[in-house]
Design a protein around this nucleic acid. Sequence first.
DNA 1: GCTTTGTGCCAC
DNA 2: AAACGTGGCACAAAGC
Length: 610
Amino acid sequence: MHLVLAAQPADAAVTGPDPGSGSGPVCAVRVLDERARQGPTPAEVVTRDGLATLVHEAESSTSPPRWTWDDTNRWYPALLTAGERVERCRDLRLAHRILRVSSLAATSDLATSSPSGWDALEHSPVGGAAVVGVLRAPQEESLFDLAAAPRAERERAREKGVPPSGAGADAGLDPVAELAVQEAAVTGSTAPGRLRLLLAAESAGALAAAEMHHAGLPWRTDVHDAVLTETLGPRPAPGRRPERLEALAVRIRAALDAPDSLNPDSHPDLLRAMEYAGVGARSLRKWELERIDHPVVEPLLEYKSLYRLYTANGWSWLDQWVRDGRFRTDYVVGGVVTGRWSASGGGALQLPRGVRRAVQADPGWVLVVADAAQLEPRVLAGLAADETMAAAGAGGDMYAGIVATGAVETREHAKVGMLGAMYGGTTGVSGQVLPRLSRAFPRAMGLVEDAARTGERGGSVTTWLGRTSPPPGQAWDAAQSGALGDGAPADAASLARSSARAWGRFTRNFVVQGTAAEWALCWIAAIRRRLWRLPTAAQPNHGPAPFADRAHLVFFVHDEVVVHAPAALAEDVAREVREAAEEAGRLLFGDFPVSFPLTVATVDSYADAK
DNA sequence: GCTTTGTGCCAC
DNA sequence: AAACGTGGCACAAAGC
């Protein structure tokens, strides 16, 4: 059953539970059956409190509904704040985005109709205003290019809480009608089961993302501060360098015989000084400096490393991002073209190893950290139905398994070769072992090669569940046509060739990275459902309801999760997370014998995992 | 003064 | 100036 939520104007009459409490009307709730058909029940108009009550009742039933709404971030954060958790939903915005371009539903009304308000909806951060992008006039090119509205303009609008172009956040958007259009697109697609799974997984991801933001990642400010003080020295006064950095700056100047005025933060100045000193570096990149034998290299590399910690994850980072012992970022579901998530705020998906020490479980609780071992090559094996490659992964370490087949001699070669195959690497060891991998695993290697050829022609590729890659942009088209004709510049042909190959590397990687993201979505969907069924904790953690006494997800990075769990439940959580991985594998690949083993660690601090 | 671009490093 | 995919982010310099 779908319960469809639609925002209501303030003057609508309230008919739902608790009509006397809360503020004005919030939404109309309509009941639809599984096939999105509306029954005889009229819409119920409820207040904010009424909605929480209604959700509570519906979620307590034996078969909770699928909440269907325009945007999870518009509805769910307030429900979580009210202590309510929902089992499943359909995020119409995210689903629309997938269906609009999926090659599996290319003939649907949804895909063939002109862009609507649903195409203009953008990610809205938790607590932020709903944001509508600018739809360009139909006669212009690139109808779907919502990024056409300059990013800065959209961000200004977002900060002010004002949707750009005067569009009401949901002007004319009818979720009941949209759901019907989506269901028709799925049902009439060439793979309804896969698309339905993808939409469910994407929507479950939206729930998990909102929940992780709500709960936050447990963060010990005191531990982080200790790490910083130990590495950089005491927190400096504003405008001053930490003392370790200052000391290194002195050593850098001495090694270069440079004046005290040399500022190591200025690349041009530093490069000039290095040139005078005859260091022989053309850039300040770490990999280049590491190859150079000169007294400045050691203090300079050290300086760069500490400077990075100081600027990216130093005291100001702590001030800005950690509140009440929790780090909260804005997860952007589907924020990456491939379907991976991105995150905005605090560099959440790039937490350096060094500061993970500060991620610590609350007293009486633990962190269960799990990551999928060699996820992408395993996904490729499933995607290509390559039984030989799948068998190589049966033992737990797929790279060791590849060595055991005799295809390559060392684990390192297997790893670099596979990564090269999936990224399009051609040089070094990666290029060397590729022919042998192709001979050993023709199906898997053939799949990525085909994906690359398609991209080189400017074509689109589609993941296992149906997410389709975008077409190359105008610049790409221009590069290709630029190489034609007699008057073409001499380097036009090479530009055309290199951009064609670059797009081939993108599509080559898209199918693997995108399908891995789908596996991961299914994994977290299963994890959150399973965790909710575990017993509650005797001792609550320091976070908010509804997760204060429940094991819950607190972090997710592509192929890795962190669960904050009552210590007594650690084993149960580890088991559920492993079973969820098996479940995800079956959901995607059915009986095909590809396995998805995990590395699981129960720790007090994130730094102790792995 | 502001915004944009270039550089470089972190994560998977 | 990276080879080889996807991102976020901070800072200095350049551009307006």
